[in-house]
Design a protein around this nucleic acid. Structure first.
Lengths: 119, 119
DNA sequence: GCCGTACTATGACGACTATCGTACTAGCTT
DNA sequence: AAGCTAGTACGATAGTCGTCATAGTACGGC
């Protein structure tokens, strides 16, 4: 798979280029409750968030794992800023490839959360 | 999990009731290439199709397995008609729970297929 | 009743997944 | 330089998943 080339000396991370993002991979990445929750919070924030500001009920290494799955599926973009690793939803790429998909999933997740809370 | 009760003497199959359909389960069910293909053909047909009219590149038991995953996730409805087992997308339930989701996924799948074919 | 068609159930197998703990690295702060 | 913070790499483990083959069940037609 083609990936972006890390600049020499930096700590850039490998991401799939837009054309290599697969629908099946995106759906699989979003089918895990924890990862769906991560993407929801990221989308809600509308800006970069560090891994550490998510208080997930799993260990640090498991957290790292889930963020990597999301990055490798093309759902999020990750970049180092000092010791922190910032995360952002790949809105432009995803909306170009699959118009409306992310919005539908986020809306569905919000509805389900509301349903669970009130029901 | 609550399921529909098979009528006595029939061969009705257990389906989750609408309220028990989980977004994560739906996304997971759709994240397999074969299952996504099944749902696409079913949606395209717009009517019930038997399992046997899908010519999937896997064995019969694997085919059965994939249809069951789709049914248990709440994506399709299955009913026996004689020896045939008919399948249909659970449009009403899915569109009520997650408006626009299935359409977005189907549209995304169609775009990806077109991209792959021409690219 | 017997046969064919359509699908299931069971058990197996290899691959992948989610999880963890421990040990480690990179960068900031003092 | 020393220490703290954020995150990684590695190995282990238990569980799930996709696949198959074999043997079996349910229904319709002859």
């Amino acid at each position: 798979m083609t990936v972006t080339v890390p600049a020499a000396g930096s700590r850039a991370l490998p991401h799939p280029v837009r054309e290599d993002i697969r629908l099946e991979g995106v759906l699989h990445a979003l089918s895990d409750p924890l990862r769906l929750q991560i993407v929801r919070r990221l989308a809600e924030a509308g800006r970069e968030l560090s891994c550490s500001c998510f208080d997930l009920p799993v260990s640090k290494s498991t957290t790292t794992h889930h963020f990597r799955v999301l990055r490798e599926a093309g759902v999020i973009w990750q970049v180092y800023r000092g010791t922190a690793k910032m995360n952002d939803v790949r809105r432009d790429d995803l909306d170009t490839l699959f118009p409306g998909l992310i919005d539908s999933v986020l809306d569905a997740a919000a509805r389900q959360a509301a349903r669970t809370a009130t029901g």
